[in-house]
Design a protein around this nucleic acid. Structure first.
Lengths: 108, 108
DNA sequence: ATCGTTTATCGTAGATATACGATAAAGGAA
DNA sequence: TTCCTTTATCGTATATCTACGATAAACGAT
């Protein structure tokens, strides 16, 4: 008797992959939170309205320059915004972009 | 008149970062879909019940070995499962893990 | 056993991430 | 001005991703 044959769970109806830009955008947003430190930063910024960079650094076991790099990545994704305030920089979540991330993942 | 001063949006209440493992896990899941090709693979597998590797390769503008690497990353994250079926391998979504991703992002 | 199909792995090359210390830049305070 | 604080950037080292072709491994078919 032969082994359980091919058509168990696989269907073979052809599909075309919508090579849309939404995949790129979701990937970009996912990339922003694809590091534990950045997840923690995002959660921190969601937990409070805004937060000075120095305080974020204080909460993480990373060098200040490393945290600054993570913040730059988060800013590049649009998920986080920074506002200069004297010598300090105040970071906050971009609610629209966060909403977009949640929607994109939810619609998977 | 001095520039708009510090206490505009920043609050200074101390927070402690829950250095929990959920950050690591979310980062891991996010990392899995942090590449456009992997987003498309995940969408493809959600769109149908299961799919043979070769068909995934056919839908992407990437070499077979590259797609295989992406599939490995998706498997490592737990988001995708592969079942050997003769010489072919049938891939499918792990619904529980997908649910976990959605929940983790939604709970942000 | 041999062939053909399918998929994973190897080897490699280039690009990018991650981390740190050191330094620069910007601004408030003296 | 001259400090001091705060944050970004530079330079560097290491590691990992991404991509490909080539090859190996697994299996069905003949």
């Amino acid at each position: 008797m032969a082994k359980r044959s091919t058509q168990k769970t696989c269907d073979s109806t052809p599909v075309k992959l919508t090579a849309d830009s939404t995949a790129d955008d979701l990937a970009k947003l996912a990339w922003a939170i694809a590091h534990p430190a950045r997840v923690q930063i995002v959660r921190l910024l969601i937990g409070r309205q805004a937060c000075v960079c120095g305080e974020i650094v204080a909460q993480l076991p990373l060098a200040q320059s490393t945290v600054s790099q993570h913040l730059k990545i988060l800013k590049d994704s649009g998920l986080v915004q920074g506002e200069v305030d004297g010598p300090k920089v105040c970071y906050c979540i971009n609610p629209d972009r966060l909403k977009q991330l949640k929607a994109s993942v939810a619609d998977l």
